[in-house]
Write a protein that binds this DNA or RNA. Structure first.
Lengths: 346, 346
DNA sequence: CTGGATTTCGTAAACGTTTTTGTTGATCAG
DNA sequence: CTGATCAACAAAAACGTTTACGAAATCCAG
């Protein structure tokens, strides 16, 4: 409970001067500033967040909204933890804190977001898993809350976003598998109206078309983007008539890939031997046998880009990041493995 | 930006009365209270968090600390998301919010916690993955911050905690495997000094001793508690001389189990056929083939118990939860599967 | 020297809310 | 009818900080 008042009293200074010294304001003698800094350190003084944000009208906190409960979204895994880490290295430069705002499964996500915003929990927000049409975007824009989306959406208010290059993954994946003789290529799509599903399918369709291959809706496998989903797809494939089955598959979710490998082994279609797999790289996928042919990107760098793009839209920080409104597709690098062998002849 | 002042002005009331009406204080006419509630609703008024917590000296927020970065702890997964959900159902009854405080991999966890506490981010904290000796416990106790630990520790200040029954899992697991003829039983232990490692090993040792079986340190396999770790253990087992290899294994981490299954298949020791596995149940483990013999508990109920035990130590809420200082080991229920077959004869 | 600029600091207002204390009628017991 | 109790509200203080403003001291140019 050491407040700024005690600190000032102990130093024979006014609280105003102490505050300015702590905040690096110009009109304070450098010598006294050192005195203040030192005293604050030894007394363990840290400014009270409530008082500070009440006065400043800003909290110094950026929120990342995520839903709790039995996960069907695949959020909360190592993917986001790595992205967060990148975000935080940028935020640390500005004394900004990142917290995860946990929306209970019992509360409506839109209502939760409104509550969070109105209460002034955070100065800015990061949203992810954007839907085809996403109300959160409308709302945040209308309330003039700085935010950035990880993922595109048809709901477009000219807001900043970053997204993975799903088009590139579909195109490159199809190209590789076709070159190896595959004619029936399956892909994954989410069950809900997450935007990436639409993007991914459309790019997949276009890639097939360009190569004169038919687009077969039965080769689109919908599932939750987690281990269970990947496992179930493998079994669904095995349940198809042999001549209808795909011989290769493209997916993008890391957790899913683990389950898919598991499932393929179970149904007697071992990856890299009887079935070709291309997915996204991840620390968790690294140990897979055979080695996964995959698309790699640095999640930490993604987080850094995300943070910088967000700060570029916040008046108080924009000067340091003259990026304008960032709307960018992040490319991935192909890593050749052994999971996408040529199609079995005969 | 609709403040309580505008609301009061619009209603021809003083801000004090409006505040009391909103907060359910007694000395306000029921009719005017309705008027206030209605107006607040239509105007979309939500109390400003900064002003409120400045005045009240409390934030209405409970923080769960977790570390970001490439995860080696296995946190951030579906385990915690499910626990969170239970916590939140209790918190919702008291207008308490749960947020995840994300400690960057570049910041010292202890320093981060001190900063969080001093700044007044949260009224109380939940910590997990407790270490054998855990400085966080000392610190929180010395600062008189209400908190609860998910996990025991040798650092004991009489604080509340909940923990899974690792002793029970070790004892039951060993008993089952021994009954099926297994003589060499391996177990998992974490690489760091997480407390559960000590507890688990000790219980395992005791269970063997009671059955006259030798305790062999080579049967303790240390790894990170994630898919990769489980995978690596399977390969480590296969690399042992055949007569030194365990024929069965007990582990408790859900992610790890997935990697372990994968690895066992890879090394030609398919679970349930040539190698016995017992682990903890989880949504992710449900699809495993063969069906996992496992220990089940409701993570949601665990979260509820956690929240109630925490509130019992917070003066403002203790009256509703006369539990005293909760220090409890949560039992798990055995679910019989097909992964722990009898040891192969010959 | 002198007047204005500059440096350094103190004073006080302000942020939005909750809560304590007062104040006004109305009600009630005697 | 009178004094006390009570219900319902208003007024104002308080939470801890930042910042606009002003004041004193110092400096410098002329």
């Amino acid at each position: 409970m050491t407040g700024i008042r005690e600190l000032a009293q102990r130093l024979n200074l006014s609280i105003g001067t102490v505050s300015r010294a702590l905040n690096g304001k110009p009109d304070v003698n450098e010598q006294t500033r050192q005195r203040v800094l030192e005293a604050a350190n030894t007394m363990g003084y840290v400014p009270n967040q409530a008082g500070r944000s009440l006065r400043k009208g800003a909290t110094g906190v950026v929120g990342f909204m995520m839903q709790t409960g039995a996960q069907i979204t695949g959020e909360g895994d190592v993917f986001f933890m790595s992205v967060f880490d990148g975000v935080q290295t940028v935020f640390a430069r500005h004394q900004l804190d990142l917290v995860a705002l946990l929306c209970s499964s019992e509360e409506d996500p839109d209502a939760y977001m409104q509550r969070v915003v109105a209460r002034g929990f955070a100065d800015a927000l990061i949203i992810s898993a954007t839907k085809r049409e996403d109300h959160r975007i409308d709302y945040l824009a209308s309330r003039n809350i700085p935010f950035i989306a990880l993922g595109r959406s048809q709901t477009d208010v000219g807001h900043p976003w970053l997204d993975l290059d799903f088009e590139g993954m579909a195109e490159t994946g199809v190209a590789r598998l076709v070159a190896k003789g595959h004619r029936r290529i399956g892909i994954f799509a989410p069950l809900d109206n997450t935007n990436l599903g639409f993007v991914f399918i459309e790019a997949y369709r276009k890639a097939l078309e360009q190569r004169g291959l038919p687009f077969d809706p039965d080769l689109i496998f919908r599932a939750h983007p987690n281990e269970r989903g990947g496992h179930d797809i493998a079994h669904a494939i095995a349940a198809m008539p042999p001549n209808k089955q795909p011989t290769g598959f493209i997916l993008t979710n890391e957790l899913m890939t683990l389950g898919f490998y598991n499932g393929l082994y179970e149904v007697g279609l071992p990856p890299g031997q009887k079935f070709a797999v291309i997915s996204r790289d991840s620390p968790q996928a690294h140990f897979l046998v055979p080695k996964l042919t995959s698309f790699r990107l640095s999640l930490r760098d993604l987080g850094i880009a995300l943070a910088e793009a967000l700060l570029a839209t916040m008046p108080a920080y924009a000067a340091h990041y003259p990026l304008g409104v960032v709307r960018k597709i992040v490319p991935l690098e192909l890593v050749e493995g052994d999971s996408d062998m040529p199609v079995a002849t005969g």
